[in-house]
Simulated scan of single mutants.
Amino acid sequence: MTTIGIITERLQEFGTAEQVRSNRVRLKTTPDRVRDAVTLSLVMLGCDRLITISTLDRGTTFELLYHLTGPHRIILSLSVSLPRDRPSSPTVSDLLPPAGIYERQIHDLFGIMFPGHPDLKKIILNEDWPADEYPLRKDWKPRPESFYGGIKTERM
């Protein structure tokens, strides 16, 4: 049987793991360790469901949060901090197929790259959305006279 103590202990090799609630463990790891942490979570810890991948714009960095669970009903949150100037984290879509759609959304809205992803084409934004503009970044502002979803912005 998998317990919260076992999960917390096993994840220590990938970064800082701590129990943050009675049924939740948070692991702070790095992009180069996230695939290993997900693999261990799947194989050894029984986390067989991806709840979601969420993203935070912290101003100077981005944070990816992978939320996993399994039959044990413990929620595991893997936290990965990414530099703002070149945010990138390897894809986990081959390990957790539902991650592929979340990674596409995050790429669309934040510009975070997922090397190894089979197809990071747009999924939310229109195809005519300007390249290198990511609307959920805190520093994003629409450019005057640009088209966003077929609508031209006014001069400011």
Rank of each mutant, 00 (worst) to 15 (best):
H67W: 10
H67V: 09
R73N: 12
T91H: 02
V80Y: 00
H72T: 01
R84D: 04
R73E: 10
D94P: 10
D85G: 14
P83I: 04
S79W: 00
P71F: 07
L82M: 03
L95T: 09
L76S: 00
R73H: 10
T91I: 04
S77T: 09
T69D: 12
S89L: 11
I75Y: 03
I74D: 00
I74N: 00
S88C: 13
R84T: 02
L78K: 01
L78H: 07
T61P: 01
P90E: 07
Y66S: 06
I74G: 01
P71T: 08
T61E: 11
D85F: 12
V92N: 11
T60C: 05
L78T: 13
G70S: 15
I75R: 07
E63F: 10
T60W: 02
T60Q: 11
R84C: 01
S77V: 10
V92T: 12
P90C: 05
T61V: 01
S79V: 04
P90I: 09
T69Y: 04
Y66Q: 05
E63S: 11
S88A: 13
P87C: 14
R84G: 03
T61K: 02
I74F: 00
F62G: 04
V80L: 11
P87Q: 14
T69A: 03
E63G: 09
F62V: 08
R84A: 06
T60S: 11
I74S: 00
Y66A: 04
T91K: 05
G70I: 15
L68I: 13
L65Q: 14
T60G: 13
V80R: 05
L95M: 10
L95P: 04
T91W: 02
L68H: 08
I74V: 03
S93A: 14
S79A: 06
R86F: 15
F62R: 07
S81I: 14
I75K: 05
R86Q: 15
T60K: 08
D85W: 11
V92S: 09
T69E: 02
L64Y: 12
V92G: 09
R84M: 08
S77Q: 08
F62Y: 15
E63C: 10
L95S: 11
G70L: 15
D94Q: 12
T61N: 03
I74C: 00
L68M: 07
L65V: 15
F62M: 04
S81E: 14
L65A: 13
T61M: 04
L78I: 14
